[in-house]
Computed example of a mutant assay.
Amino acid sequence: MELAYDTGQRQADILSLTWTQYDGTAFMVQQSKTAAKVVASVSPEMRARLATVKRTGVQVVIAEATGQPYKRMYFSHEFTRLRKLAGLPDDLQFRDLRRTAATELGQAGATDDQIRAQTGHKSRNVVSVYVVPERAMSEGGQEKRRAWRKRGENDESKS
């Protein structure tokens, strides 16, 4: 779940990740739904976490109980179990991790193209479904606008 939250990838793509797809900073993913090729960068924190994982096979995500890759239904049950243990809302779905990753990228000031590069969305219209505009984004936009205006004022004063 942490890997999905960090990379913004779908459940099927997370479950199929192999160590050969990981170069130490990103996973090279060919998404199962769209066949989009994505370089899904991982955060420094996730890199450190992955460095501690004992590699017992080809798959990155394996069931701790069996040491084998998760079957889709078993993983869904595990997600539900962990969601309840964490006290998270019953309506939270695995795909919400993808939406949260995209939203946080937007809140942090990533452009639509930067978000698309991370998540593999093909169009900006689809990104707009995931990224929920909010106050911090508006304020960030105004801050960028103010900085842009200041640069223009400084350029004019030099002429």
Rank of each mutant, 00 (worst) to 15 (best):
M1S: 08
E2F: 07
D6C: 02
D6Y: 00
T7I: 03
G8P: 00
Q9S: 03
Q9T: 05
R10W: 01
Q11R: 15
Q11W: 00
A12F: 00
A12D: 05
D13T: 07
L15I: 03
W19N: 02
W19C: 05
Y22C: 04
D23W: 10
G24S: 12
G24Y: 08
T25S: 15
A26I: 10
A26K: 15
M28R: 15
V29S: 08
Q31P: 00
S32M: 10
A35D: 14
A36V: 07
K37W: 08
V38K: 03
V42F: 01
S43Y: 02
S43G: 09
E45K: 13
M46S: 01
A48I: 07
R49S: 08
A51S: 15
T52Q: 14
V53N: 00
V53R: 03
V53D: 00
K54E: 11
G57R: 05
V60N: 02
V61E: 03
A63L: 04
E64H: 08
A65T: 09
T66V: 02
T66W: 01
P69A: 01
P69K: 02
P69Q: 01
Y70C: 01
K71C: 07
Y74G: 08
Y74R: 12
E78H: 11
E78R: 13
R81H: 11
R81P: 08
R83K: 13
R83T: 04
K84W: 02
L85K: 14
L85Y: 03
L85E: 12
L88E: 10
L88H: 04
L88S: 04
P89G: 09
D90N: 13
D91V: 09
L92T: 11
L92F: 12
Q93D: 11
F94Q: 09
F94R: 04
F94S: 08
R95I: 07
L97K: 02
R98A: 07
T100F: 03
A102P: 00
A102W: 03
L105S: 01
L105I: 04
G106H: 01
Q107C: 13
Q107H: 11
Q107A: 10
D113G: 10
D113T: 11
Q114N: 04
R116V: 02
A117M: 12
A117V: 05
Q118R: 07
T119D: 03
H121N: 10
K122W: 04
K122N: 05
S123M: 06
S123F: 07
R124A: 14
N125I: 03
V127C: 06
V127H: 04
V127P: 05
V129N: 13
V131M: 11
V131F: 09
P133T: 14
P133S: 08
E134L: 03
E134A: 11
A136Y: 00
S138H: 15
E139L: 15
Q142I: 14
K144S: 13
R145I: 14
R146V: 14
A147V: 09
R149E: 12
K150Y: 03
G152L: 10
D155F: 14
D155L: 15
S157M: 15
